[in-house]
Amino acid sequence: MKIDDLEQMESEDLSTLSSAERRRFLKIGLAVTGMYLGGSILSLISVKNAHAAGVVPEAGTYPYNPHYSMVLREHLCIDCERCKEACVKTNHVPSYGFRTTILEKRRSLGEDKSETIFVPVLCNHCNRPPCVRVCPTTATWKDEKTGIVVMDPSRCIGCKTCMAACPYNARYFKEETRAVDKCDFCLQSRLSKGETNPACVEACPADVRVFGNLADPKSRVFQLVHAPDTMVWVLRPETGAVPNVFYINS
């Protein structure tokens, strides 16, 4: 190669690198470091961008469509447990386990009086599900279409890390399938067969459980969590899991 040719060639020194390219390179480096640190860096990058200004994501920022979620109108729950019965029947839940249950708390009304509040709980199908992050064999993941946290029993090695990681006690080990079992909003038993509601929602006589597509402004779940003068809360927000099960009292 002649010296003239060489002069005509594009310089390959750092000055010609666009900053975008630099950033890209740095990102590769970070990604590699992240891999080597065993996900401790990767884990900081959520499955999907989580918008957590308040517990209800801004309209239009739902990662999925349909973005399935449930709103629980807490004060209406009377612990008749029809939801539990329906769930057990629909999803073959063994007697030692549960996919959904009802908790009970007491709130003082002053003096020696108090009221009972029943709290239905189930898998929160989090936007940043800790259970999904920790599974060594990707036996559990967020369904790409619906955002539902699903399980493939045949991949489960039974290390129970997902059970330890779940902030909501939503998982249990099912001996029959030799795998961890959990609520999937009845995706397998009902939604995939054309039903629009999970069994628990259909069974509830008090309209406590409202299920639907949060990404659809016309859906009831959307309207409930975006209603004016409504206090919306989630369980254990401090864990950063960004749950999709919301609680209201109106």
């Binding site: 996900g39 884990s43 992050r133 920790v134 060594p136 064999t137 045949s154 991949r155 039974g158």
Partner: peptide, 25 residues
């Protein structure tokens, strides 16, 4: 663990790089 026989293939065929337990193993 409950299903050790699912582990050797599982961690190779379906690895999860965000899982500390995968890296640990």
């Amino acid at each position: 663990i409950e299903n050790p026989w699912r582990m050797p293939l599982g961690v190779i065929l379906y690895p999860n790089v965000t899982s500390n337990i995968w890296w640990m193993g």
